[in-house]
Design a binder for these strands. Structure first.
Lengths: 145, 145
DNA sequence: TTCATTGCAAACCCTTTGCAAACCT
DNA sequence: AGGTTTGCAAAGGGTTTGCAATGAA
């Protein structure tokens, strides 16, 4: 059993299309939409893979913690490979899609059951995504000016 | 010229459907989807208002700063009335949709042009939404246990 | 053989758009 | 009258689902 396949899909039955999808996801180092993942798969394996298969594979990989939804772009979900197990967030480069981990600005290390606030609200979950430019893209942009 | 209408749509030409929509938005004290807003409009004015009109009105109200997109629920945008002009975020009650303002956990008072990070990334924008339970819903839930 | 997985196509949902009719001003 | 706004219906984009055919174990 291939280690990558295992990471991505656990003990699920092997399938070539899914394997190709996992490989493509691994090669895309940054954040990507399902569409971009599809393009990456097609670039390496001619056996395209149907849209439905892509979405099903992404859902599986997310379940197995191989991928994580890190935001969205133009109404499409953004995914990225993420090995970290502790609570954190991501910063996504608007230029190239590269991602980096970001500590939780709420100062929460593990997703807590609940945290109280002065106004009486109890926070049970939160969504934080940072967008910006990675060092490379920031440099490129500065040059352009 | 009605003050509410003015707030919601600025100096735009008056229209009864839009006025009804603004009234409904005002009555829904918390966060709501366009669908829920439609229901609220229908509840007070039988003249339903087409989906397109709803979306167009919401877009206008957002432009005029009367509404703000505060998150999403089940793939639909969540909107809430918001008078504040400075940079802030929202906490949305999962129970009743009520919202409250939340200070920016990144410690940013005004949306900045850019903020640097140790890893070289430059943050240009960020999305933060907190979800949880308002005091009332939290109390109800505690009773249930 | 047997059951999971694929692929296609159609369905779905939310949202947007084109356009003639209705409506403010 | 003249330009806006409405409402309908159709298009659009992303995502999901039903189902027969394929493929791994």
């Amino acid at each position: 059993m291939d280690a990558l396949y295992q990471q991505a899909f656990g003990g699920a039955r092997f399938s070539e299309p899914r394997f190709a999808i996992a490989r493509a996801a691994q090669r895309l180092s940054g954040a990507f939409t399902v569409d971009e993942l599809a393009a990456a798969v097609r670039a390496q394996d001619c056996s395209a893979g149907a849209t439905a298969t892509l979405y099903r594979a992404v859902a599986l990989m997310e379940q197995h913690g191989f991928l994580e939804r890190v935001g969205e772009r133009d109404g499409s979900g953004l995914y990225a490979q993420c090995a970290a197990r502790s609570h954190h967030h991501h910063i996504v480069c608007d230029g190239c899609g590269k991602t980096a981990h970001a500590e939780c600005p709420l100062g929460i290390a593990e997703e807590p059951p609940a945290a109280g606030r002065a106004d009486g609200f109890v926070i049970t979950r939160h969504e934080v995504t940072l967008y910006g430019l990675c060092p490379d893209c920031a440099a490129t942009q500065t040059e352009a000016c």
